[in-house]
């Protein structure tokens, strides 16, 4: 079973590289996300604090808001899983990340950071990463996203 899994991963990686050179795919599988996004000319399509706060303003019950926010985390995570690069490996239900993300976006300095990375930072915090490590990650991330033109300076 493990051998099959390893062979599958190797085959997947190889084929991803092959297909990135064909005309069918417009983007590469293996490029870092920020680099790849930098090549895009269209407006970036991702969630950030504006969207997150929009949910808080929706005229639905608190329970529905919680369910919907959890679904957005689930959708972000699923996309990364299907792409073969899981964002996080949660050890608790996803709704337990909501308070951390709410707290993260309550700080104005984090407003521009995409939800995808807010989840990552929330997970780092849960995993016991020090504040210094998280801050270092955040600083590098913001610099990359700004350089890629995905967020404004």
């Amino acid at each position: 079973m493990i051998l099959v899994l390893i062979l599958g991963i190797i085959l997947f990686t190889f084929m991803a590289r092959v297909i990135s050179n064909t005309t069918y795919k417009k983007t590469s599988y293996q490029k870092p996300a920020e680099q790849q996004a930098a090549n895009q000319t269209a407006a970036p399509l991702f969630l950030d604090s504006v969207d997150w706060n929009t949910i808080n303003g929706l005229q639905v019950t608190p329970v529905e808001k919680t369910i919907f926010k959890t679904q957005l985390l689930k959708l972000s995570l699923e996309a990364s899983i299907i792409n073969g690069r899981p964002l996080i490996t949660p050890t608790v239900p996803l709704y337990e990340y909501l308070n951390d993300i709410d707290a993260f976006y309550s700080q104005a300095r984090n407003a521009k950071i995409p939800l995808y990375f807010a989840i990552k930072i929330a997970d780092m915090k849960r995993s016991g990463a020090s504040q210094a490590v998280i801050e270092g990650y955040r600083t590098v991330l913001v610099a990359k996203l700004e350089k890629a033109g995905l967020i404004k300076k």
Binding site: Q36, T41, L45, L58, L72
Partner: peptide, 27 residues
């Protein structure tokens, strides 16, 4: 709006994990 946010979550997740679903020219 909820559907739009859902689609943005998927596209954001796929873009940042290395393979955007939507093509570059899709605004």
């Amino acid at each position: 709006q909820m559907k739009l946010l859902s689609l943005k979550a998927v596209e954001g997740g796929s873009m940042f994990s290395g393979t955007p679903i939507l093509a570059q020219n899709e605004q």
